[in-house]
Protein backbone atom coordinates (compact mmCIF):
# COMPACT_ATOMS: atom_id res chain seq x y z
CA UNK A 1 0.00 0.00 0.00
CA UNK A 2 1.20 3.43 -0.80
CA UNK A 3 1.59 5.47 2.33
CA UNK A 4 1.17 8.74 0.50
CA UNK A 5 -2.42 7.85 -0.39
CA UNK A 6 -3.66 7.99 3.18
CA UNK A 7 -1.43 10.81 4.36
CA UNK A 8 -2.70 14.31 3.85
CA UNK A 9 -0.36 16.65 5.62
CA UNK A 10 -2.43 19.74 4.96
CA UNK A 11 -5.31 18.20 6.93
CA UNK A 12 -3.38 16.60 9.76
CA UNK A 13 -1.15 19.45 10.79
CA UNK A 14 -2.55 22.62 12.30
CA UNK A 15 -2.31 25.75 10.19
CA UNK A 16 0.25 27.37 12.44
CA UNK A 17 3.32 25.38 13.34
CA UNK A 18 3.34 24.59 17.09
CA UNK A 19 5.79 26.57 19.15
CA UNK A 20 8.65 24.23 20.05
CA UNK A 21 10.62 26.93 21.76
CA UNK A 22 10.54 26.95 25.52
CA UNK A 23 9.87 30.32 27.03
CA UNK A 24 11.93 31.05 30.11
CA UNK A 25 9.14 33.20 31.48
CA UNK A 26 6.65 30.36 31.45
CA UNK A 27 5.55 29.27 34.93
CA UNK A 28 6.98 25.79 34.68
CA UNK A 29 10.33 27.03 33.45
CA UNK A 30 10.60 29.45 36.33
CA UNK A 31 9.77 26.66 38.78
CA UNK A 32 12.40 24.55 37.12
CA UNK A 33 15.10 27.16 37.44
CA UNK A 34 14.06 27.98 40.99
CA UNK A 35 14.19 24.36 42.11
CA UNK A 36 17.60 23.88 40.50
CA UNK A 37 18.79 26.89 42.47
CA UNK A 38 17.38 25.42 45.68
CA UNK A 39 19.11 22.10 44.98
CA UNK A 40 22.46 23.86 44.49
CA UNK A 41 21.92 25.85 47.65
CA UNK A 42 21.01 22.74 49.64
CA UNK A 43 24.08 20.90 48.35
CA UNK A 44 26.31 23.80 49.32
CA UNK A 45 24.70 24.16 52.77
CA UNK A 46 25.11 20.41 53.32
CA UNK A 47 28.83 20.77 52.60
CA UNK A 48 29.33 23.57 55.13
CA UNK A 49 29.39 21.31 58.24
CA UNK A 50 32.15 19.14 56.81
CA UNK A 51 34.26 22.16 55.91
CA UNK A 52 33.62 23.62 59.36
CA UNK A 53 34.56 20.37 61.12
CA UNK A 54 37.75 19.97 59.09
CA UNK A 55 38.64 23.64 59.60
CA UNK A 56 38.12 23.29 63.36
CA UNK A 57 40.22 20.14 63.49
CA UNK A 58 43.10 21.66 61.55
CA UNK A 59 43.08 25.08 63.22
CA UNK A 60 42.26 24.12 66.80
CA UNK A 61 43.82 20.66 66.76
CA UNK A 62 46.74 21.29 64.45
CA UNK A 63 48.81 23.65 66.54
CA UNK A 64 49.21 21.21 69.41
CA UNK A 65 50.27 18.43 67.09
CA UNK A 66 53.82 17.47 68.02
CA UNK A 67 55.83 14.43 68.94
CA UNK A 68 54.95 15.10 72.57
CA UNK A 69 51.26 14.25 72.22
CA UNK A 70 52.15 10.81 70.86
CA UNK A 71 54.55 9.91 73.63
CA UNK A 72 53.17 11.56 76.78
CA UNK A 73 50.42 10.46 79.13
CA UNK A 74 47.22 12.52 79.59
CA UNK A 75 47.68 15.51 81.91
CA UNK A 76 45.79 15.82 85.20
CA UNK A 77 43.55 18.78 86.04
CA UNK A 78 45.78 21.86 86.13
CA UNK A 79 48.82 20.29 84.50
CA UNK A 80 50.22 21.84 81.34
CA UNK A 81 51.43 19.86 78.34
CA UNK A 82 50.86 16.16 78.18
CA UNK A 83 49.58 13.99 75.37
CA UNK A 84 47.58 10.90 74.62
CA UNK A 85 50.06 8.24 73.59
CA UNK A 86 48.40 5.62 75.75
CA UNK A 87 45.01 6.40 74.20
CA UNK A 88 46.33 5.78 70.68
CA UNK A 89 47.74 2.44 71.82
CA UNK A 90 44.45 1.72 73.59
CA UNK A 91 42.36 2.43 70.50
CA UNK A 92 44.58 0.10 68.46
CA UNK A 93 44.38 -2.64 71.11
CA UNK A 94 40.59 -2.49 71.55
CA UNK A 95 39.98 -2.38 67.81
CA UNK A 96 42.47 -5.23 67.47
CA UNK A 97 40.46 -7.36 69.90
CA UNK A 98 37.29 -6.46 68.00
CA UNK A 99 38.88 -7.41 64.69
CA UNK A 100 40.22 -10.72 65.99
CA UNK A 101 36.74 -11.70 67.17
CA UNK A 102 34.61 -10.37 64.32
CA UNK A 103 36.69 -11.02 61.21
CA UNK A 104 36.91 -14.86 61.36
CA UNK A 105 33.25 -15.23 62.33
CA UNK A 106 32.07 -12.70 59.78
CA UNK A 107 34.22 -14.19 57.08
CA UNK A 108 33.04 -17.78 57.63
CA UNK A 109 29.42 -16.67 57.93
CA UNK A 110 29.80 -14.83 54.62
CA UNK A 111 31.09 -18.04 53.01
CA UNK A 112 27.98 -19.81 54.23
CA UNK A 113 25.69 -17.05 52.95
CA UNK A 114 27.38 -16.69 49.56
CA UNK A 115 28.52 -20.22 48.76
CA UNK A 116 27.12 -22.99 50.89
CA UNK A 117 23.42 -22.32 51.17
CA UNK A 118 22.67 -18.92 49.68
CA UNK A 119 18.95 -19.56 49.31
CA UNK A 120 18.23 -21.52 52.47
CA UNK A 121 16.06 -20.36 55.33
CA UNK A 122 19.04 -20.00 57.67
CA UNK A 123 20.79 -17.76 55.16
CA UNK A 124 17.69 -15.65 54.73
CA UNK A 125 17.23 -15.13 58.46
CA UNK A 126 20.97 -14.61 59.04
CA UNK A 127 21.09 -11.95 56.32
CA UNK A 128 18.10 -10.20 57.87
CA UNK A 129 19.70 -10.37 61.32
CA UNK A 130 22.96 -8.95 59.96
CA UNK A 131 21.09 -6.05 58.35
CA UNK A 132 19.23 -5.42 61.60
CA UNK A 133 22.55 -5.49 63.48
CA UNK A 134 23.92 -2.69 61.26
CA UNK A 135 21.31 -0.50 62.93
CA UNK A 136 22.10 -1.65 66.46
CA UNK A 137 22.77 1.49 68.52
CA UNK A 138 26.41 1.40 69.49
CA UNK A 139 25.56 2.11 73.13
CA UNK A 140 23.58 -1.15 73.25
CA UNK A 141 26.61 -3.08 72.03
CA UNK A 142 28.29 -1.64 75.10
CA UNK A 143 25.39 -2.62 77.36
CA UNK A 144 25.55 -6.15 75.96
CA UNK A 145 29.30 -6.46 76.47
CA UNK A 146 28.85 -5.09 79.97
CA UNK A 147 26.23 -7.71 80.78
CA UNK A 148 28.16 -10.57 79.22
CA UNK A 149 31.85 -9.80 79.82
CA UNK A 150 32.26 -7.08 82.44
CA UNK A 151 29.83 -8.60 84.93
CA UNK A 152 31.30 -12.08 84.36
CA UNK A 153 34.95 -11.10 84.69
CA UNK A 154 34.31 -8.44 87.31
CA UNK A 155 36.51 -5.85 85.61
CA UNK A 156 36.54 -3.33 82.78
CA UNK A 157 38.97 -4.55 80.16
CA UNK A 158 40.17 -4.44 76.56
CA UNK A 159 38.55 -7.83 75.68
CA UNK A 160 35.19 -6.54 76.96
CA UNK A 161 35.57 -3.52 74.69
CA UNK A 162 36.61 -5.89 71.90
CA UNK A 163 33.36 -7.86 72.25
CA UNK A 164 31.33 -4.64 72.02
CA UNK A 165 33.24 -3.45 68.96
CA UNK A 166 33.08 -6.89 67.33
CA UNK A 167 29.30 -6.73 67.52
CA UNK A 168 29.39 -3.49 65.54
CA UNK A 169 31.98 -4.72 63.03
CA UNK A 170 30.35 -8.09 62.35
CA UNK A 171 27.49 -6.98 60.06
CA UNK A 172 29.78 -4.82 57.89
CA UNK A 173 32.26 -7.67 57.48
CA UNK A 174 29.54 -10.25 56.70
CA UNK A 175 27.54 -8.18 54.24
CA UNK A 176 30.45 -6.78 52.23
CA UNK A 177 32.26 -10.14 52.13
CA UNK A 178 29.09 -11.87 50.96
CA UNK A 179 28.61 -9.26 48.25
CA UNK A 180 32.19 -9.69 47.07
CA UNK A 181 31.95 -13.50 46.97
CA UNK A 182 28.74 -13.34 44.98
CA UNK A 183 30.52 -11.33 42.30
CA UNK A 184 32.84 -14.26 41.52
CA UNK A 185 31.79 -15.56 38.08
CA UNK A 186 30.05 -18.93 38.33
CA UNK A 187 32.01 -20.14 35.29
CA UNK A 188 35.19 -20.15 37.33
CA UNK A 189 33.55 -22.18 40.05
CA UNK A 190 31.98 -24.59 37.56
CA UNK A 191 35.38 -25.15 35.97
CA UNK A 192 36.89 -25.97 39.36
CA UNK A 193 34.11 -28.41 40.20
CA UNK A 194 34.56 -29.91 36.75
CA UNK A 195 38.15 -30.93 37.47
CA UNK A 196 37.00 -32.58 40.71
CA UNK A 197 37.55 -30.02 43.46
CA UNK A 198 35.65 -30.39 46.72
CA UNK A 199 33.48 -27.46 47.76
CA UNK A 200 36.06 -26.33 50.30
CA UNK A 201 38.77 -26.40 47.68
CA UNK A 202 36.65 -24.31 45.35
CA UNK A 203 36.03 -21.83 48.11
CA UNK A 204 39.65 -21.59 49.23
CA UNK A 205 41.34 -21.70 45.85
CA UNK A 206 38.87 -19.96 43.55
CA UNK A 207 36.31 -17.87 45.43
CA UNK A 208 38.49 -16.37 48.14
CA UNK A 209 41.46 -15.22 46.05
CA UNK A 210 39.06 -13.63 43.56
CA UNK A 211 36.88 -11.98 46.19
CA UNK A 212 39.75 -10.93 48.48
CA UNK A 213 39.84 -7.21 47.56
CA UNK A 214 36.12 -6.89 48.31
CA UNK A 215 36.42 -8.80 51.56
CA UNK A 216 39.30 -6.59 52.69
CA UNK A 217 37.31 -3.47 51.82
CA UNK A 218 34.62 -4.59 54.24
CA UNK A 219 37.21 -5.33 56.92
CA UNK A 220 38.79 -1.88 56.53
CA UNK A 221 35.40 -0.15 56.69
CA UNK A 222 34.54 -2.09 59.83
CA UNK A 223 37.86 -1.14 61.44
CA UNK A 224 37.36 2.51 60.48
CA UNK A 225 33.94 2.52 62.09
CA UNK A 226 35.11 0.73 65.23
CA UNK A 227 38.07 3.08 65.73
CA UNK A 228 35.75 6.04 66.01
CA UNK A 229 33.23 4.46 68.36
CA UNK A 230 32.92 5.88 71.84
CA UNK A 231 29.63 4.75 73.32
CA UNK A 232 30.47 1.03 73.50
CA UNK A 233 33.76 1.79 75.26
CA UNK A 234 32.39 4.01 78.01
CA UNK A 235 31.56 1.19 80.37
CA UNK A 236 33.50 -1.71 78.86
CA UNK A 237 36.98 -0.20 78.51
CA UNK A 238 36.42 2.79 80.80
CA UNK A 239 39.60 4.86 80.70
CA UNK A 240 43.09 4.66 82.08
CA UNK A 241 45.81 7.20 82.60
CA UNK A 242 48.54 4.65 82.15
CA UNK A 243 50.13 2.68 79.34
CA UNK A 244 48.69 -0.64 78.22
CA UNK A 245 52.13 -2.23 78.47
CA UNK A 246 54.13 -1.13 81.49
CA UNK A 247 57.35 -2.65 82.78
CA UNK A 248 57.04 -5.43 80.24
CA UNK A 249 53.61 -6.65 81.35
CA UNK A 250 50.43 -6.04 79.40
CA UNK A 251 47.49 -4.99 81.52
CA UNK A 252 44.89 -6.98 79.61
CA UNK A 253 42.29 -7.35 82.33
CA UNK A 254 42.31 -3.72 83.38
CA UNK A 255 40.59 -0.56 82.17
CA UNK A 256 42.17 0.76 79.01
CA UNK A 257 42.40 4.22 77.45
CA UNK A 258 41.07 5.09 74.00
CA UNK A 259 41.19 8.21 71.86
CA UNK A 260 37.43 8.56 71.58
CA UNK A 261 36.77 8.31 75.33
CA UNK A 262 39.62 10.76 75.92
CA UNK A 263 37.96 13.26 73.58
CA UNK A 264 34.66 12.78 75.39
CA UNK A 265 36.21 13.22 78.84
CA UNK A 266 38.34 16.22 77.90
CA UNK A 267 35.61 17.99 75.91
CA UNK A 268 33.62 18.57 79.08
CA UNK A 269 36.52 19.76 81.21
CA UNK A 270 36.90 23.41 82.20
CA UNK A 271 40.64 23.49 81.45
CA UNK A 272 41.99 25.07 78.26
CA UNK A 273 44.83 22.54 78.03
CA UNK A 274 42.46 19.56 78.04
CA UNK A 275 40.13 21.11 75.48
CA UNK A 276 43.06 21.78 73.16
CA UNK A 277 44.17 18.18 73.57
CA UNK A 278 40.63 17.00 72.79
CA UNK A 279 40.82 18.83 69.45
CA UNK A 280 44.25 17.41 68.70
CA UNK A 281 43.09 13.92 69.64
CA UNK A 282 40.09 14.41 67.32
CA UNK A 283 42.41 15.35 64.50
CA UNK A 284 44.50 12.22 65.08
CA UNK A 285 41.37 10.04 65.34
CA UNK A 286 39.85 11.44 62.15
CA UNK A 287 43.17 10.87 60.34
CA UNK A 288 43.20 7.24 61.53
CA UNK A 289 39.61 6.71 60.43
CA UNK A 290 40.23 8.34 57.07
CA UNK A 291 43.35 6.24 56.56
CA UNK A 292 41.31 3.05 56.92
CA UNK A 293 38.59 4.48 54.67
CA UNK A 294 41.15 5.29 51.99
CA UNK A 295 42.66 1.81 52.32
CA UNK A 296 39.17 0.36 51.89
CA UNK A 297 38.69 2.39 48.74
CA UNK A 298 42.08 1.58 47.24
CA UNK A 299 41.50 -2.13 47.87
CA UNK A 300 37.95 -1.97 46.52
CA UNK A 301 39.05 -0.33 43.29
CA UNK A 302 40.52 -3.58 41.98
CA UNK A 303 37.25 -4.85 40.59
CA UNK A 304 36.65 -8.57 40.17
Amino acid sequence: MNIQDSFHPEQEIAKEAPCLQRSLLEGRSITNILLTGIAWLAAIIASVPLISVLYGLIVKGGHRLSLEVFTELPPAGFEEGGGFGNAIVGTLVTVGFGAVISIPIGFLAAIFLAELEPDGKVAYVARFCAKTLTGLPSILAGVFAYAVVVLATGTYSAPAAGVALALLMLPTVVLTAEGAMRMVPSKMKAAAYGIGCTRSQVIWKIVLPTALPGVLTGVMLAIARAAGETAPLLFTALFSNYWFVENGTAHVMEPIASLSVLIYNFAGMPYENQIELAWTASLVLVMMVLLFNILARVLGRKKV
Binding site: P104, I105, G106, F107, L108, A109, I111, F112, L113, L116, E117, V122, A123, V125, A126, C129, A130, T132, L133, L136, L140, V143, F144, A147, V148, L167, L170, V174, R199, S200
Partner: peptide, 22 residues
Protein backbone atom coordinates in the same frame (compact mmCIF):
# COMPACT_ATOMS: atom_id res chain seq x y z
CA UNK B 1 31.60 -26.42 55.87
CA UNK B 2 30.45 -27.25 59.37
CA UNK B 3 32.44 -24.36 60.78
CA UNK B 4 30.99 -21.91 58.25
CA UNK B 5 27.49 -23.11 59.09
CA UNK B 6 28.14 -22.62 62.78
CA UNK B 7 29.30 -19.06 62.12
CA UNK B 8 26.17 -18.26 60.12
CA UNK B 9 24.08 -19.57 63.00
CA UNK B 10 26.18 -17.42 65.33
CA UNK B 11 24.69 -14.29 63.77
CA UNK B 12 21.20 -15.50 64.68
CA UNK B 13 22.39 -16.55 68.11
CA UNK B 14 24.04 -13.18 68.75
CA UNK B 15 20.82 -11.30 67.99
CA UNK B 16 18.90 -13.63 70.29
CA UNK B 17 21.60 -13.36 72.94
CA UNK B 18 21.46 -9.56 72.90
CA UNK B 19 17.72 -9.63 73.53
CA UNK B 20 18.00 -12.38 76.13
CA UNK B 21 20.96 -10.98 78.08
CA UNK B 22 19.65 -7.42 78.28
Amino acid sequence: RGLATVCAWLILIVVGLILWKI
